[in-house]
Simulated assay, not measured.
Amino acid sequence: MEKSSKSFVATLLFCIFLGYFSIHRFYVGKIGTAILQIITIGGFGIWLLIDLIMIIVQQFKDSEGKRITA
């Protein structure tokens, strides 16, 4: 799997501090799901928690399907 050019640390910090505004999804280019996440307030927190876990275990992918890794 190819590595993304997006920063792992930036994605993680965006998710932790601005996750309810879905900034981490906008950052990685997932605009459609970012808007859905905003409308549902982070999936009522569940979607946000899943994203956070996926980022920490380095399984979160950008809009091109590349993994965001440290």
Rank of each mutant, 00 (worst) to 15 (best):
K6V: 08
F26T: 04
T11H: 06
M54L: 14
A10Q: 11
I31M: 14
F21A: 11
A70F: 10
D51M: 06
L18I: 10
G19Q: 01
I31W: 15
I35Q: 07
S4A: 11
F44Q: 09
V28T: 10
I56S: 02
G43D: 04
A34W: 11
S5M: 09
F14P: 00
W47Y: 15
I53E: 02
A70V: 09
G42S: 12
C15S: 05
M1F: 13
K66T: 05
I55E: 02
Q59K: 15
E2R: 12
Q37D: 09
I35M: 08
G29P: 12
M54P: 00
V9S: 14
G19D: 00
K3N: 13
I31C: 12
L52V: 08
I41Y: 13
Y27E: 05
F8M: 07
G42A: 11
I50A: 11
L18F: 15
I31H: 14
V57K: 10
I56G: 00
I39F: 14
S5R: 14
K66Y: 07
C15N: 05
I41F: 15
Y20V: 07
L36M: 15
R25Q: 09
E64D: 15
F21I: 08
S4N: 07
L18A: 14
V9P: 09
W47T: 09
T33P: 11
V28W: 00
S7F: 07
L12P: 01
I50T: 06
Q37R: 03
L48R: 05
I46Q: 01
I16P: 00
C15K: 01
I38F: 11
T33V: 12
F8W: 13
I39Y: 06
G42M: 04
G65A: 09
T11A: 14
E2D: 14
K6C: 10
F8T: 06
G32S: 15
Q58M: 12
T11N: 13
T11W: 07
L49S: 02
T69Y: 05
K61G: 06
L48W: 15
T69L: 08
S5N: 14
S63P: 05
V57W: 05
S4G: 12
I39K: 08
I41S: 15
I55Q: 01
Q58Y: 05
G45I: 13
Y27A: 05
A70R: 12
R25T: 06
I23N: 02
K3W: 05
L13K: 04
I55H: 01
I16T: 08
T11F: 03
G43L: 12
R67E: 10
I39C: 13
A10R: 09
T33N: 14
T69M: 06
Q37T: 07
L49P: 00
R67V: 05
I41V: 15
H24M: 03
L18K: 07
L49W: 05
G45W: 08
R25S: 10
L13P: 00
M1K: 13
I41H: 13
V57D: 10
